[in-house]
């Protein structure tokens, strides 16, 4: 009797664990089908992509799609632009949002909450309608077709301010007060004490900003003219022709394009979870 129970206790969790993993793997696989479809299509010859009934694999491995994707537009240049712009945007977002987040959470001034509510409110206006006024402003600045126009309007983010504020609210005041008594000013305590503590929420903001900048299409489309500052999504959409889409080429370009942003996610996801946890967005 006793022995059976022990056996049960030893084996049951293992079986359960295995079952868990099997079911999860199957689910993950099903979940990945659209994604696999993209990669498989990127390897089909162009003329076979739209054949009905759908065949899972093409008649041969069409690596020329990747070559076409690479030469269709200046892929290297666009890739560099995407990375560069996403990094700069993240940097701007991190610097300005942590500063304003600090002001909104830890400094006391009148009208603070009203101003903050205004910030939040702008999140609710769809981009499609502010994009033309913004375009006109960029024209005035002479920023048309420049990196600056791709970085700054996106970098000053209300979402970032919101995120940093939520996190900074959770840092106990005593920590800063102690420093203040030691003669630290607000600036010093911000740099020396607050920022180091905010590492993971900064990482969170960095990931969100990076991915958003990476995927962004409408604004880059409108604000760029030459190939100098264009980004990958614009390149991917180039396969959308007037007379039909080069699907295998598009899928190839898309398959390459996800690598950098997925890498950023993988590298920083540890901080992401931690960051969300600490911002209070994730619970407490």
């Amino acid at each position: 009797m006793n022995e059976i129970k022990t056996n049960r206790q030893t084996y049951k969790p293992i079986i359960k664990k295995a079952a868990n993993h099997i079911v999860l793997t199957v689910l993950a696989f099903i979940f990945l089908i659209p994604f696999l479809g993209m990669v498989i299509t990127s390897l089909k010859p162009e003329t076979e992509v739209l054949l009905l009934p759908i065949r899972i694999f093409g008649s041969r491995l069409a690596m020329e799609n990747y070559q076409r994707a690479w030469t269709f537009f200046p892929f290297g240049q666009f890739l560099f632009n995407s990375v560069f712009i996403a990094l700069c945007t993240s940097l701007v977002a991190v610097i300005t949002s942590s500063m304003s987040g600090y002001a909104f959470s830890r400094l006391h001034f009148r009208g603070r909450d009203l101003l903050f509510t205004m910030y939040l409110g702008t999140l609710m206006i769809p981009q499609q309608v502010t994009v033309i006024p913004l375009f006109i402003i960029m024209r005035r600045f002479g920023w048309y077709d420049t990196y600056a126009a791709m970085v700054f309007p996106v970098g000053f983010t209300a979402f970032g301010t919101f995120l940093m504020r939520q996190f900074l609210l959770t840092i106990p005041y005593e920590i800063e007060d102690a420093a203040r008594i030691d003669g630290c000013g607000a600036v010093e305590s911000f740099i020396r004490i607050i920022l180091p503590m905010a590492k993971s929420s900064i990482a969170t903001l960095l990931i969100f900003t990076f991915i958003n900048s990476w995927k962004s299409f409408l604004w880059p489309l409108i604000i760029t003219g030459s190939d100098r500052v264009k980004t990958l999504p614009l390149g991917i959409y180039m396969f959308n022709g007037q007379y039909g889409t080069d699907w295998s080429g598009l899928m190839s370009a898309a398959s390459i394009a996800i690598i950098p942003s997925f890498l950023v996610f993988i590298l920083f996801q540890k901080y992401l979870v931690k960051g969300i946890t600490m911002t209070g967005l994730g619970g407490r």
Binding site: I132, I136, R139, I222, G225, S226, L234, Y237, M238, N240
Partner: peptide
Amino acid sequence: ELSTTDWNGYWTKLPSELAGGN
């Protein structure tokens, strides 16, 4: 000096350009 867009993009970009002046 030529600048190019994809087909669908053109019909978003053209009105924006006309709206933006210059």
